[in-house]
Design a protein around this nucleic acid. Structure first.
Lengths: 239, 239
DNA sequence: GTCTAGTAAATGTCTGACATTTCCACAAGC
DNA sequence: GCTTGTGGAAATGTCAGACATTTACTAGAC
């Protein structure tokens, strides 16, 4: 794999890191491949060696690359990637072609975790948390009708789940929710929402909201599970 | 807070990053405080500005610091820390004086998550997973008697929990377990194990192992909950 | 008083040189 | 023939200095 296939670069080291990372996430290089040298990258994108090094430092920190003085830069295998690294999370945003294996793993995680989180939220939610959930749900409702508002609907959907994690009032879960944002977005974009299934999805979200509002922990748990069952159907994981 | 209270530094930028990060994790600086300037740090530890910048880049990536050209470096509040960053995980290893707020948050997360993980493990565990759990438990048993084997016992304890996460056969949970390693270690070191409580802890771990071996998901869930109740008592969170 | 220009101080960036590590080839010695 | 050592090439790692950019503060003009 050469650099020629990549789009032209514009901006600082962060942009360059994002560009290279997404190329790696899309599988443009195979694990074990040697990555281009610093000087070549710098020459190709017309940036200083400093910028290249800063970018490569990020990719290395995320477990995508392995660098050794004298040998060069190697591409690591998927199992070594730091999926929960915030940088990864950022790079995955807007990336639609996720590995199917990864999609299933993330779904399975959410199916096991999110009911618990919803239960915690029902216990710990405060007024502002309820407000966030309500406004996200209202956004989902208002953007449910039209087809062109699909992106907007996805935003509100993600906001709803994020608000749920946040309402648990646990530092770790909250971060988890933040990190899962792009994954959830990818799942939503993969799931084909027809209008009838959309109504069903809305109804299930509403039950989560109501249960949290009523401080009904076990109700929130089962409602969250129902939301994810709906997601599974839309994803084609089950029928 | 000045730099004078910190131990002397020896090694590269990673060592320096670790040193500064641990000082931050221990709460030596308050959120909002200004962090020492690059040149001062370099002078104090007798390292080049480059090393300092590399170290500070890591701390910034982990959400510990916020740097702005012209203003300087500020310490961010605990809610902004990237607790799930692998770097954090590394820095927390061997650190016994964790922020109490952090200890409670991590414990609360484990109390909500680990039962679910144990349940998944009971469903998905394969022969090698059971083996890992068994050998970890055997190590815990053999090192339970003597006082001098306390560090060894902690190792096996951590290995047991790690094996549980791994047995869930979910990529995300597995990484989660890996990231939680140092936190779990810190929790174990904080908990004062007397010999009588240690027997109790062992018995509860055994129940988790048995439930997973018998593919008893709900049994594993409640057993894992019991293990964490024991931990809570040892931590002094509850009586 | 208020706005503005200027100045100091901090982080960000570029550049070139040098250090260190690794691999490879080639030759010497047993 | 096999090992061993030695040297050079190539890659990343480190350093030092100058310069750029951003920010906050201050002094002065009006």
């Amino acid at each position: 794999m050469t650099l020629d296939a990549l789009p032209t670069h514009q901006g600082g080291a962060e942009q360059l890191a994002r560009l290279l990372a997404q190329a790696l996430l899309a599988g443009h290089w195979q694990p074990g491949d040697v990555f281009p040298r610093e000087l070549d990258i710098g020459k190709h994108f017309a940036v200083s060696r400093n910028q290249v090094r800063n970018a490569l430092t990020s990719l290395t920190a995320a477990g995508l690359l392995e660098r050794t003085a004298g040998r060069g830069t190697l591409v690591r295998e998927i199992g070594d990637w730091h999926l929960l690294d915030p940088l990864m999370s950022e790079w995955m945003t807007g990336l639609i072609n996720l590995d199917p294996q990864l999609v299933r793993a993330i779904y399975a995680f959410r199916y096991s975790a999110e009911p618990v989180v919803a239960g915690l939220a029902a216990q710990a939610a405060q007024a502002e948390d309820i407000e966030r959930l309500e406004s996200a749900f209202a956004g989902m409702e208002s953007s449910a009708g039209s087809v062109e508002a699909r992106a907007e609907h996805a935003e509100y959907d993600v906001a709803f789940h994020d608000a749920t994690y946040r309402a648990s009032h646990n530092l770790v879960w909250r971060q988890m929710g933040h990190l899962l944002r792009p994954s959830i977005m990818a799942l939503i974009h993969r799931s084909q929402h027809r209008t009838d299934t959309l109504d069903d999805s809305l109804a299930r979200h509403r039950q989560v909201l109501d249960a949290i509002r009523n401080r009904d922990a076990s109700g929130a748990e089962s409602a969250a599970r129902e939301v994810l069952r709906r997601t599974a159907i839309d994803l084609g994981i089950v029928n």
